[in-house]
Design a protein around this nucleic acid. Structure first.
Lengths: 128, 128
DNA sequence: CAGCATCCTGCGTGATACTG
DNA sequence: CAGTATCACGCAGGATGCTG
């Protein structure tokens, strides 16, 4: 179905947004990266916070999310090309500009969803 | 997975947000409803704008999205209980408070995703 | 008109094992 | 350490047909 993907990107920013951040971890990855570059393992570990620990994040999944984010231009991958492997991910300019949007989401969620998990007591959310 | 929903709601507003708006149409429905109450058919028709028309929205899908939104407390369902059936959906207070968030998303998307679909040249995004 | 019942399919996600 | 390769599964979401 829907073979011809010549669809005009739907023309809806909201839909494009949804596709871009589709996936369980993309938003959280970007959010975590706002504080600076992080390595693969660090992201993985950081993502486990807030989860009930019943499930570890499959490398395949995280890998794909990171790749998608990279291709979306939100994050940048820096491979140090050394052994043992060291790879850092950091926000691009575009990615940084996206942080306030996530902040707005978090803000709303905190207020209207009465989240009991203050992993962070509302960080900077200064819109540009 | 995650049978025991005793999980602490993940503690992440972002994750909760993603669950709440998961689905292809939820965000667009809320956005469309910001201009006032709409009937089932109107929502359905309105949602078709921006799609390449290759696929109609299955009633089952739209129905589920609307029900989910209702249970999320973002929209309210008003059944006139007449024949032929007339049902209107409108934003709740919570739903209205969510509109600015979508506006922020649209704003960002329009700027950074270069969307060519100006279904509306940025409508009012005044928070309440 | 506003749905619900049924079937079907692709993809996102998880688990496990292996590699440079 | 930072991934890739495979297998498997549940569910979102599309297609039809029917109903009050």
């Amino acid at each position: 179905m829907a073979k011809a993907k010549s669809a005009p990107t739907c023309g809806c920013p909201v839909t494009a947004f949804q596709k871009m951040i589709s996936g369980k971890y993309k938003l959280r990855i970007v959010w975590d990266l706002k504080e600076g570059p992080r390595r693969y393992g660090e992201i993985r570990t950081g993502l486990l916070r807030g989860l009930d620990g019943s499930s570890e994040i499959a490398p395949r999944v995280l890998s794909r999310e990171l790749k998608a984010l990279t291709e979306s231009g939100l994050i940048d991958r820096k491979d140090y090309g050394v052994v043992p492997p060291k790879v850092e991910y950091r926000l691009t300019r575009k990615g940084k500009s996206f942080v306030p949007v996530i902040a707005a989401i978090r803000n709303w969620g905190t207020r209207h969803l009465a989240q009991a998990g203050p992993d962070e007591p509302l960080a900077g959310m200064a819109a540009e």
